[in-house]
Design a protein around this nucleic acid. Structure first.
Lengths: 389, 389
DNA sequence: TTGTATGCGTTATCAT
DNA sequence: ATGATAACGCATACAA
């Protein structure tokens, strides 16, 4: 495969441009072209570096151009999908690039294109058991579409504002927020003009892009089923007050309970973990003085804590003496020991929707806000009696 | 607080430098200074943009400098911790920066400093229940130390090499790999001179930086305890063959079993999930034709699957008829329904060690490889009889 | 199709 | 302490 003439190493001509040289002292030499600079550097490295300890300097497109005897822009073009490059050129560049281990520098690219291909994912706490599933799905989706995930976990104590500042610094193309944020923090996204999608949370006042599961609908459905099965005295172990999702679940349940004319439920507050489910049950029994017919827990893990405590600590039979239901449909809820009655969120669909939305938003930033609402799926497990009592 | 004289808006003098203008046609005007360019752009934006739709252009340090009547480098310095800036200057810059909502561009900074403050975290699959804990800890540690986490999840099917290529493109300062990588892939880290720490895996041939838990020691301890309690016929549900951790656990157990002169154990292979624990138990019973004294599972989730299947499907009493032990010490292993006998890995310490090591390595790249080995903690739960049988 | 020249927004190196 | 200027590595308009 003979090289075409125009690919022969023709060194770019030295730059004798409009700069008619300088009178003011013999200080500054005429500026060398970047390629020439590179040439010099390469020479320095070659003489300086010991053979085995190869240069710490990264290989750049200039190095490839120099070696191939072409221009830097030619190299750049060869790495751009739709560019107009002759096959011979592309082959040559790719060959040399491989030889030199050249990898395009995404940082430099981002600077010029103003697209970092970075998306920030904000997540409250990964220990929640539900969020890892979400994160996993989001990652898959974004990776599939050529976006990299910059992960921010927001522990409760930490200074969230300071963390969010980091998001701006890195010029992310978009943000998925599955974390507890104040309206002010969300407003900041808007002000910064960074496309963002909220996951399982919305704003009261402003319409925003969001993917949510209809928690109220789900909670109502749950109560309806429990009531139909004859449960009369219901109790609730709610999520923490700063969890929008938790509040909605509680509200939906309470509303439906009232509609059905059932007794006003006892509500104790949990924080989504196993122990607060256990503590919640004990507190309910203390307040009520007896066993309720059913306990609605703000998530599966609390429900699991509740079931375990009922069975192994209090000697209560679940479901015959007490029904327990949860929310989320995390994997452990399906384990044989629990086989929890719960409302499963379609995590995969929701994550996919969030990724799709964000990508569409990045492409077309001024679309009007959209909210995609998914329904939870009722899972009839073995921790509740749902036939007639 | 009167401004000092030298802070008065003194516009940088226009650039009448060595360029003695050009004869060749009236094409190129003398190059304007960056500040002047910026000034012009700002003007264009002001006249073009509608009042409410503020400019999409990001605010840069030039904008701040322009507004404050100082040089761009002064602005830059004010955002650098140790720089020598007068208090008055700093105050002025910060005030204007706040007014304009200026945020330094980390991308541009990275380009010049050659430090991205980005670390890549490579994780196999987040659905493993053990990895979210690791990831969470790693994140905390890195965030605390001013590094951002670029997350890469490696699904089994995906082209790992292509994913890793993305790591190089983003010029990460370091890598923590808690994923199944081939020795070639690890060698690539080395060749690229990117500091890296392996989490819970090492290389056979080369010494590498790694944080590991001593799986062999743990497995041996487990067998020792089981044997001391009188268990004679042991069986193993191993992790998948491509999991180094799993292999070591199996090897340690097998060696110790041999040393103690016990019968050679049946070994069936699982893939770390709940169902493969269940399937593993059934397979063991099939092969053995009877119940073994104890089953050692490659991780907690398989152990849980094993316990559940024994109790709820096969009607076996755990631990009186069958002991089951696991590895990891994930949260569900502590739940009352299981109260699993297991070896807990000190995840928090390990993650902290990994972060520390990587940061030290970034600061001093040519340190010789170190391996930090942690011991697992034996947790005596209720799924095994460990007193005399 | 290919090369030249420029700019992205910052930090670093000077000179002042 | 401050300002002017040159990189950093790439993509892109424009000229050829």
């Amino acid at each position: 495969m003979a090289e075409k003439t125009f690919l022969k190493p023709k060194l770019p001509k030295t730059r004798n441009t409009n700069k008619v040289s300088k009178p003011p002292a013999a200080s500054k030499a005429p500026k060398a072209s970047k390629l020439q600079q590179r040439q010099k550097k390469a020479a320095v490295v070659a003489t300086t570096a010991t053979p085995k300890e190869t240069s710490r300097r990264a290989v750049t497109s200039y190095d490839v151009a120099l070696r191939a005897g072409i221009s830097q822009s030619a190299v750049s073009r060869c790495f751009k999908p739709g560019a107009s490059v002759s096959p011979a050129m592309r082959a040559l560049v790719m060959k040399v690039a491989r030889e030199l281990d050249y990898t395009p520098n995404a940082i430099a690219r981002s600077l010029i294109t103003r697209r970092s291909n970075l998306v920030a994912v904000l997540i409250s706490n990964l220990t929640n058991l539900y969020y890892p599933e979400v994160l996993s799905e989001l990652c898959q989706q974004f990776e599939k579409r050529g976006l990299r995930v910059l992960l921010f976990t927001l522990p409760h104590e930490a200074d969230v504002d300071k963390m969010i500042a980091q998001v701006w610094e890195y010029q992310v193309d978009g943000v998925v927020a599955a974390a507890r944020l104040t309206p002010q923090q969300v407003a900041e996204f808007e002000r910064r003009q960074v496309p963002f999608v909220l996951y399982n949370r919305t704003l009261q006042d402003k319409p925003v892009n969001a993917v949510v599961c209809d928690q109220i609908e789900g909670a109502r459905l749950l109560v309806t089923r429990l009531a139909a099965a004859g449960h009369k005295r219901l109790a609730i172990i709610s999520g923490p007050t700063d969890s929008v999702v938790g509040q909605e679940r509680t509200r939906g349940a309470r509303e439906r309970i009232a509609e059905l004319g059932l007794a006003k439920p006892i509500i104790v507050e949990g924080n989504y973990d196993y122990h607060s489910g256990a503590a919640g049950l004990r507190e309910i029994l203390r307040q009520l003085g007896c066993t309720p017919d059913a306990i609605i827990c703000g998530n599966d893990v609390m429900a699991i804590g509740c079931v375990d405590t009922a069975r192994h600590e209090l000697g209560l039979n679940v479901p015959t003496e007490l029904s327990v239901v949860g929310f989320d449909g995390v994997e452990p809820s399906t384990w044989l020991s629990y086989n929890l009655t719960t409302l499963r969120q379609p995590v995969q669909m929701m994550a996919q929707a969030a990724a799709e939305m964000l990508i569409a938003l990045i492409a077309k930033p001024d679309s009007s806000p959209e909210k995609r609402v998914f329904s939870a799926q009722f899972i009839e497990g073995g921790t509740s009696v749902l036939g007639p009592l």
